[in-house]
């Protein structure tokens, strides 16, 4: 079996996504939940990178105007840049809210979130 980076990367990214989602679902500590969320987001980012075919492609910068093929697809890279920025913002906001919540209640445990219940 030929284990090249191109075949391993999608599987690896999927594993990271599942690991992250599992963490979000099972962890009780808010900070660990946000770490899991970041892991899942990293997995998604890798998924985008894995489909650009970067292993054999050239950097998509037009140095020589006569060469128009063989470049990797730049669009997923651009999208992932946006996604990374958004992910950072979400993590920052989440941790800020967590810090404030901890200040108020002295706990980071989600199972102790009892303010809003049916």
């Amino acid at each position: 079996m030929n284990l090249s980076l191109e075949t391993v990367l999608p599987a690896f990214s999927l594993m990271l996504i599942l690991l992250g989602l599992w963490g979000v679902a099972t962890r009780k500590n808010l900070i660990k939940i946000f770490i899991s969320l970041s892991i899942a987001e990293t997995g998604v980012n890798l998924l985008y990178i894995s489909m650009t075919g970067f292993v054999h492609g050239k950097v998509p910068i037009l140095a020589d105007p006569t060469v128009t093929s063989g470049y990797v697809d730049p669009l997923p890279h651009a999208m992932i840049l946006t996604s990374i920025v958004i992910g950072t913002a979400v993590t920052a906001l989440g941790l800020a809210l967590t810090a404030r919540y901890h200040e108020r209640t002295g706990t980071l445990n989600v199972t102790k979130m009892k303010e809003l219940k049916n």
Binding site: V24, L30, I33, L93, G94, L97, Y101, L116
Partner: peptide
Amino acid sequence: LEGAIKYLL
């Protein structure tokens, strides 16, 4: 804060 954290997740 609790609502915001749940919304964010």
